[in-house]
Design a protein around this nucleic acid. Sequence first.
DNA 1: CATCTCTAGATTGTCGACAATTTGTATGAT
DNA 2: ATCATACAAATTGTCGACAATCTAGAGATG
Lengths: 249, 249
Amino acid sequence: MTASGVKTPRIVVDPDVGKGGPRGQQVVETLRNAIITGAYEPGARLVESTLAAELGTSRGPVREALRQLENEGLIASIPYRGAIVLGISEEEVQDVLIPIRLTLERYSFTHALERLTEADFAELGKQVWLMEQAAKTEDLARLVEADLRFHEIVITSSGLPHTMQIWRTIWPRIRTYFYSYGRSRDFMIMVEEHRELLAAVQTRNYDLVMSQLEVHIAVPSLPSAASRPRTRLVDAELEMHGTTVKAGS
Amino acid sequence: MTASGVKTPRIVVDPDVGKGGPRGQQVVETLRNAIITGAYEPGARLVESTLAAELGTSRGPVREALRQLENEGLIASIPYRGAIVLGISEEEVQDVLIPIRLTLERYSFTHALERLTEADFAELGKQVWLMEQAAKTEDLARLVEADLRFHEIVITSSGLPHTMQIWRTIWPRIRTYFYSYGRSRDFMIMVEEHRELLAAVQTRNYDLVMSQLEVHIAVPSLPSAASRPRTRLVDAELEMHGTTVKAGS
DNA sequence: CATCTCTAGATTGTCGACAATTTGTATGAT
DNA sequence: ATCATACAAATTGTCGACAATCTAGAGATG
């Protein structure tokens, strides 16, 4: 019934995810996981009433969840039209999200150096261990999860409200990117980098931590390198699931 | 009724702002302006039912507006407790928001260079003219407004969905900062910088635009300079209107 | 046969009422 | 007097129903 090549939203939703929450925040996590893991492909339409029925809740929490996901850049909603899942180009990740992430982490680590406790170190070590286990079994999902958890611990303990806020709005996209483009041969390298990063943090040596960060978060050069030649690609993607889905004539 | 030194939320709301909107998005703009201009000071409590009554609407739109403002870093809400207006330290603006803004603008201008039309140039020129008028009358509000509008035009016409999304979540804080720390003697310099930036854009010369951007958006050095010495200040501010307002002994 | 209009369906936007949760306070026991 | 407990007030969280709006398609009309 749907038009030509438009993706149909899968009805599959994992009710196991996000059961421990005081409110319909569970809906946010459920939908976010569905998008990140690719259950909902870019271009898929998300209808409030349908999702509410599938998740066994009312439209209120679903509506809030969609707004949250919109602020995380995972979906775009058009008034009276509905919401669709957004994709993200590798170029925009490399040239925008990763540099922003580096800014956030530089500042967070700087402040966290004076605040991290022994308990935090233990928790960070736990994540490294989890990453190692995931790397051995080539489990990309768990690897990415432990990776982001590692950095989230540092950012949270830095206690900087706005840095934390921005982190919350960009990590879902970074996670989506890792899911799509993660390569298995890099696994052990990532683990080792985190181990060294943790060791550097434990010394509380500022310069050492900064240099480790730089090599860990592979930051590309200025946008000049990749951006200028292939602008048309971005155009195409934007038109596809951006403003006009099918402007008549 | 209220405790010791906690600010009381002013009941003053400008009903003139945000009349042209298809939905209760007006509420977002009204509240945002109230926060940005300082009508609601940091630490002020925002109660859904109270705001709904004052704005002549139901709690639904107000609720969504608060979530939006939370994602813009202007307020923080605690479950079943309420929402309070957040402040932002000059340090976090300089070390986090401004560098992120620079990243966004670099990438946006790069892509916008191939997309800006003559009509866009005219609109940009209009903003420069508005800035000049504002500078002559020392009208900080209008100056900042035209300034941000200028950059918003470029970012929007770049057509990059995620870059635009991140911009939407950080400009209110930048605007708040300009309102608080803007100095009148810098006014004409800002106008001149924008005039030169526009001229550079018109030539569509990539390197020229980039260098103009660098000097325009004064980016500080690495966080090392300002961050490490005065960590305690941030601690104090965080405790003040962050997590625990008054965690009993 | 092309084009315009109007109606019907689908979807988001809004509202008021009720439920769940937290916090502070009064009350009573030790 | 101090501490624990139970209750009451305030506030957010959730729900179902109704209103506003957009899109698509049927039908009339030239």
